[in-house]
Computed example of a mutant assay.
Amino acid sequence: MPRNKEFNYTEKLEAARNLFWEKGYHATSMHDLVDAMKLNRSSIYDTYGNKHDLFLKCLKDYTIFKENQYLRASMAQNKGIETLEYIIRDVVEQTLTDNKACLTVKTIFEVVPTDPEAQKLLLKSGESLQAILEKTILQAQADGDINSKSPSTVIARYILSSFSSFWSHYNLTQNKKEVMEMVDFLIEQIRK
């Protein structure tokens, strides 16, 4: 008769995710995962699979977290442009508060070039995030608050790509004021 799991699946997954987030995929060993998750190797393999399977589960969990963050932020305001500004500021503020690069951004640079499964997962998540932004952009354009004739898809992709630039600047300078000035500039450009 199989034994019942005596640990919280989600808590252990979060411990692994935080380790991958901190060290990166390649620098994280199974020994590191055993220590961080406080599980033996066989429990990890039996429950989560090998290191790559575990990483993909962590990445999927993180993409769901980000999609929920965007959705919550998108419901915080009534007007399209206010919603868009709130989403942008919320995402940047959390990144700076956590003082961690977005796990998605780290994975894009470290893992995606050689891992089609991670790429597929992140492309799907990116489409979801882009759709949330596009909806608010279309509303702001309809309200006359965004005067740009650029398609909402281009504006949404521009916003998403700006997030990694903000983190990069902060990582180099540790200057939150400068990053928030860049956020203000991004919003100003979107309104044009």
Results as ranks from 00 to 15, higher is better:
Phe185Gln: 10
Leu56Asn: 07
Asp46Val: 06
Phe163Ile: 10
Lys12Phe: 01
Met180Asp: 04
Thr153Pro: 00
Asp61Gly: 04
Lys135Pro: 00
Ala118Ser: 13
Ser150Cys: 05
Leu138Gly: 02
Leu121Gly: 03
Leu19Thr: 15
Lys23Ser: 08
Asp98Leu: 14
Phe20Asp: 06
Lys38Arg: 13
Glu93Phe: 11
Glu82His: 11
Glu117Gln: 14
Asn78Trp: 01
Lys23Pro: 04
Gln94Asn: 08
Glu127Trp: 02
Asn78Ala: 06
Lys66Tyr: 01
Ala101His: 05
Leu123Cys: 04
Arg72Ser: 03
Lys79Met: 06
Ser150Tyr: 04
His52Gln: 12
Thr28Ile: 14
Leu103Ile: 13
Thr95Met: 15
Leu122Phe: 07
Lys57Glu: 11
Thr95Ser: 15
Leu186Cys: 12
Lys177Asn: 10
Tyr9Thr: 12
Leu103Gly: 09
Ser42Gln: 14
Leu122Cys: 13
Ala76Met: 08
Ile108Arg: 09
Met1Gln: 14
Met180Ala: 00
Phe166Leu: 10
Glu110His: 08
Lys176Leu: 03
Asp143Tyr: 00
Lys60Met: 02
Ala15Tyr: 06
Ser42Met: 12
Tyr170Glu: 07
Lys60Gln: 06
Gly80Pro: 13
Ala131Gln: 13
Asn18Met: 13
Tyr86Arg: 06
Asn68Leu: 04
Ala76Leu: 02
Gln77Glu: 15
Ile108Asn: 05
Ser125Met: 05
Leu59Cys: 03
Ala73Thr: 04
Glu93His: 13
Ile155Met: 11
Thr114Ala: 09
Ser150Met: 13
Ser125Trp: 01
Ser168Phe: 13
Leu129Trp: 02
Phe163Lys: 03
Val111Thr: 11
Ile187Phe: 01
Arg89Trp: 02
Ala142Asp: 14
Leu59Ser: 04
Val105Asp: 13
Met180Gln: 11
Leu160Tyr: 00
Leu121Val: 08
Ala140Lys: 02
Leu96Asp: 07
Gly49Asn: 05
Leu84Arg: 04
Thr104Asn: 12
Thr136Trp: 00
Asn8Asp: 15
Ala76Gly: 02
